[in-house]
Design a protein around this nucleic acid. Structure first.
Lengths: 213, 213
DNA sequence: GGCTAAGGCTAATAGCTATAGCTAACGCTA
DNA sequence: TAGCGTTAGCTATAGCTATTAGCCTTAGCC
């Protein structure tokens, strides 16, 4: 069927640029109107084209959300990684990674809501989009294990239990901050400013020498 | 301008019943389709009437959400109170109240999402609907103060900081449980089952005799 | 028992997603 | 550089949605 396209350089680049522009505008609108309030019509208006033209780039509104979910997961994972590698291995890396992840979440409320809540009825991320989420979970697990290896946390921190408790803390910070003080930066947030305190409580819940907690 | 209706017994009761039925069906649909996915058309279909007829009972879709928000807040507050009064004053009351509140949240996912997240674009609860939320915050504050008075928590727990940290823990449990394991009951939830552990961590963060934590 | 208002209806508007099918021009390939 | 296929736009349309306007019947209060 037809010629196999090997080159397609310029066209492919234009197409990728347009897709990126659609996603960029979508995020802007989601931050203004709410994640579930995104309409393709509004995106098209902003771009100066007609709504059906968007379907040349994304198969459906859900496909746009899926691309945003994937983009968000990758960015969140990158934030975790970047924070973790900036600090010394062990507890400092865990602390810095998680804090940088939360910082990203507060700075990117629309994408963060897409990742942590279920704001779009009927939307479920595809397996590909969800893959970096698994990586993020794995990375956090490794960071906890690192702190166990350095003797800063009890080994029981690196179990399902420990990871789940940590996940609750992270989700709690992002949720409260985004739900109650949208737009307020991380360092000034009435809830996000307790991140350090909460991680400290986590540490104290898994003291390296058992029996002293 | 017309006659002032003082009686209106039967009519008023029928009307109240119909409004309650609308809200009941709305909750059912929200649990099935997602909170933001509620449509008045679906409610009307389920009731066997035409969509415009619903406007005799609620001024708009947002008004339905407002009524649900108010109902949810009252129920959540009641759950907190009921749990708290069942246990001994002090830390047990705080523990029991908060746990019962979370239990309500997990058992009522649609209403809980409406209270804790922002799932409906453009919807902001009215002042009346929000009033019980302030009461709930006040009640939790009183429970913390109670535990301070009994010497089970450090006085600093009864500050904005302590209340905010507690709020993060509660929001975290509900968020993770509802987002990742919808439908799973409280006692079996991968996240909700850590409620006790998290409250214990909170307690340990505010030990009565300072300097030992 | 009569009148009023409640509570249903249909019709119509405007906005949404999504599909179908048309057309012009972009840019790859020969 | 000429040709041609694909792309990326368009309009029209179907089938949803919320919401308003206006009609009409009947329940039930006084």
């Amino acid at each position: 069927m037809g010629t196999v396209r090997t080159g397609g350089d310029r066209r492919a680049r234009r197409r990728a640029e347009t897709k990126a522009e659609i996603l960029r505008i979508a995020v802007e609108l989601m931050e203004a109107e709410g994640v579930g309030g995104l309409t393709l019509s509004a995106v098209a208006r902003r771009m100066g084209i007609q709504p059906p033209s968007l379907y040349k780039y994304f198969a459906s509104r859900h496909a746009v959300f899926d691309a945003l979910f994937a983009e968000g997961q990758r960015a969140f994972l990158a934030a975790l990684r970047e924070g973790a590698t900036r600090a010394a291995p062990g507890l400092p890396a865990l602390h810095a990674g998680v804090t940088n992840g939360l910082r990203w979440g507060v700075a990117n409320p629309a994408l963060a809501q897409l990742l942590f809540w279920r704001p779009v009825p009927g939307f479920e991320p595809s397996a590909e989009a969800y893959e970096p989420a698994l990586e993020a979970v794995a990375l956090i697990g490794e960071l906890v294990e690192g702190a166990v290896r350095t003797g800063e946390l009890h080994p029981s921190a690196a179990t399902d239990e420990g990871r789940e408790v940590l996940a609750v803390l992270l989700a709690g910070v992002v949720t409260q901050q985004l739900a109650n003080e949208p737009g307020v930066p991380f360092d000034e947030g009435r809830f996000s400013r307790h991140t350090g305190r909460l991680l400290e409580a986590f540490r104290r819940s898994y003291p390296p020498s058992p029996g002293r907690g």
